[in-house]
C-alpha cells in the first residue's frame, strides 16, 4: 500500500479528483434526476449484461465442436470450420450484424412457411438477430482458440486414456475437454471484455442497450458530452467487474505448477 501512495501519485490522484469534481459540478447532470431516464439507464445496463452473458455461453458451446473439428476432425469437418472462423474473424462484426438483420430480415417475410410458423413473432423482433450475430462472432474467435487448446493437451494424456480402453466420447468428456478448457480459462476474461465492447454495435439494429439509451438521451436533451461520459464510466465499471469475476474464477480452479 505504501508503494502505491508515492508523492507524485498523490498529486495525480488529487488532480483526478479535482477533474471529477469539476465534471460533477460544472457540467449539466440534471437529466440524471429524471426518473424516465433512470429507468432507461438501468434497463439498458441490464440488457447489455444479459447480451454479454447469453452470447458468451452460446458462443462457447458452439466453439467446442468448431475447435475440435479443426484440431482433430476429418477434412470435410475441418475445412468448413476453418472457413467459418476465417470469415468471422476477417470481416467486421458490424457488417455481420447488418447482413443478418437487414438481409435475413428482408428474406424471411417472403417465405410463407416461416411466416406461418410459431417462431415468426420472435423473428420480427431485432434481438434474435443480435444474439445470433454476436454468438457466431464468439464462436468464430473462440473456435480458433479452442483449436489451439485441444492441440495443446499433452499427447501422453490422450494415449494413456486410449491405453486404458476409454471410448472416444468418454475420453473427450473426461480428459480432453476439461484440460483444453483449463487452458482457455485465462484468455476467457479478455474475450468477455471484448464481447462487452462489441455490444454497442447492436444498438444500430434498434436494441435499446446502454449505448442506445444514452444516444436517445442525447437526442432528447441536446446534451452531448455528459451522457457519453456516463457511458464510458458504465463500460469501465462493467469491465472491472468482469476482470474481478474471472480473477476469482481462476483462483478457484486447481492448478499444479511444476
Amino acid at each position: 500500500m505504501k508503494d502505491f501512495f508515492k508523492p507524485h501519485r498523490i498529486v495525480l490522484i488529487l488532480l483526478a479528483v479535482a477533474l471529477v469534481a469539476w465534471c460533477a459540478l460544472s457540467l449539466n447532470w440534471t437529466w440524471l434526476a429524471n426518473p424516465k431516464y433512470q429507468l432507461l439507464i438501468v434497463q439498458g445496463i441490464w440488457r447489455t449484461i444479459w447480451i454479454v452473458v447469453v452470447t458468451m455461453v452460446i458462443g462457447m458451446i458452439l466453439a467446442v465442436p468448431i475447435g475440435l473439428a479443426q484440431a482433430a476432425g476429418p477434412w470435410y469437418l475441418s475445412a468448413p470450420a476453418r472457413v467459418f472462423c476465417t470469415v468471422i474473424r476477417g470481416t467486421p462484426l458490424l457488417m455481420q450484424i447488418w447482413l443478418l438483420y437487414y438481409g435475413l430480415g428482408s428474406l424471411f417475410p417472403s417465405i410463407p412457411w416461416i411466416k406461418q410458423s410459431d417462431l415468426w413473432p420472435y423473428l420480427r423482433q431485432a434481438w434474435p438477430y443480435a444474439v445470433v450475430a454476436l454468438s457466431l462472432s464468439v464462436a468464430g474467435y473462440e473456435g480458433e482458440v479452442m483449436r489451439g487448446a485441444f492441440k495443446g493437451v499433452p499427447h501422453g494424456q490422450l494415449e494413456a486414456a486410449k491405453a486404458m480402453g476409454m471410448p472416444p466420447f468418454t475420453l473427450l468428456r473426461r480428459i480432453w475437454l476439461p484440460q483444453a478448457l483449463q487452458r482457455v480459462l485465462p484468455t476467457l476474461g479478455g474475450e468477455t471484455v471484448s464481447q462487452l465492447k462489441s455490444t454497442p454495435l447492436v444498438s444500430t439494429i434498434t436494441i435499446m442497450e446502454i449505448y442506445a439509451v444514452t444516444g436517445r438521451i442525447r437526442q432528447d436533451t441536446f446534451i452531448i458530452y455528459e451522457p457519453l461520459l456516463l457511458l464510458a464510466l458504465v463500460y469501465m465499471g462493467l469491465t472491472g467487474l468482469i476482470v474481478l469475476l474471472f480473477r476469482w474464477l481462476e483462483g478457484r480452479t486447481p492448478t499444479r505448477t511444476a
Partner: peptide, 10 residues
C-alpha cells in the same frame, strides 16, 4: 476498457 464505438463518438 471502453468500447471503440464510444471512444470514437467521444
Amino acid at each position: 476498457a471502453v468500447p471503440e464505438l464510444v471512444l470514437i463518438l467521444i
